[in-house]
Computed example of a mutant assay.
Amino acid sequence: MSELPGWRELGAIFHNDRSFVLRIVQPGLAGLMDGSVSTLAPIFATAFATHRSHTVFLIGAASAVGAGISMAFSEGLSDDGELTGRGNPVFRGIVTGLMTFVGGFLHTLPFLIGNVHTALTLAYLVVGVELLVISWIRYRYFKTSFGMSCFQVIVGGGLVFAAGILIGSS
C-alpha cells in the first residue's frame, strides 16, 4: 500500500514550529474559519424559514460536507508548496477540508434535537465556542491580540449570521 503524500513528513513537521504553522495550523485555521462562518447563513436561514430541526440538520450537514470538499480542493490546488515552503498540497488540502467540515458540522449537531428552539439555543452556544477557539488559535500561533482577534472573528461571523436571519425571516 502506498503512503499518502505528506504523511511521512508529518514527524518532521511537528519538530519545526514554522513548518507546523505553515503546514498544519494555517490550513487548519483557514478551514475552521471557513466552515464555522460559511455554514452559518444556510443553517440559520433554514431554521428560521422552516422551524424544522431535521431539515436544518440535513442542510447543515450538506453545507459542511460541501464546504469541506471545496476547501480541500481549493487549498490543494492553490499552491504546490515548493515556492512558499507550505509542504505537500494533498496533505494541506486534507487538513483544510477536514477542519472546514468540523467547523461547519459542530454547530449543525444541535439540530439532532427535535425542538428547533432548544437546538438554536445550543447552536448559538456552539458557535460562540467555535469563535473563541478560532480567536485563541490566532492569538497562540499568529501573535494576534486575543481581544482584537475575538472582535474580528465575531464581526465576520455576525455578518454572515445576520444574513442568514434576514434571508430566513423573509
Rank of each mutant, 00 (worst) to 15 (best):
V133L: 12
D80L: 06
R8P: 08
A72Q: 08
Q152Y: 15
F105V: 12
L132V: 14
V95C: 02
S70N: 10
M99T: 08
G85E: 04
D34H: 11
S169L: 15
G60R: 03
T118P: 01
G11H: 09
T96M: 10
T144P: 02
I154A: 10
F111N: 06
V65D: 08
F105E: 13
G147A: 13
R92G: 05
E3T: 09
V25M: 13
A12Q: 12
L58V: 10
E3K: 09
S149A: 15
T46H: 05
V21R: 14
A49S: 04
M99N: 12
D79T: 05
I137H: 04
A67S: 15
L4V: 11
I165M: 14
A72R: 03
V90Q: 07
D80T: 07
T50S: 11
W136N: 00
S145L: 03
P42L: 11
A162I: 15
A47W: 07
G28M: 07
I69V: 15
L40D: 00
L131D: 03
Y141G: 03
G31F: 06
W7L: 14
R86G: 10
K143S: 12
S70C: 14
V126D: 02
E130H: 06
I69W: 08
F91S: 00
A41V: 05
L166Q: 15
T121F: 15
L106E: 03
L10F: 15
I137A: 10
F142S: 02
S149D: 05
P27V: 04
A72H: 09
I134P: 01
T84D: 11
F48S: 09
R18N: 13
I154Y: 07
V155E: 10
F91R: 05
I13H: 03
G87C: 09
I154S: 11
E9M: 09
S149T: 07
I59Y: 07
V126S: 01
A123Y: 02
T84M: 09
W136P: 00
V65L: 12
A61F: 15
F105A: 10
G11T: 06
M33R: 00
L29K: 03
V153H: 01
A64T: 06
I59A: 09
T50F: 14
A49T: 00
E3P: 00
G6Y: 04
H54A: 08
V129P: 07
V155K: 05
D34V: 14
G93L: 02
H117C: 07
L125I: 14
G103E: 01
L106P: 04
L125Y: 13
M148G: 04
L40T: 06
T46K: 04
G104E: 02
I154F: 14
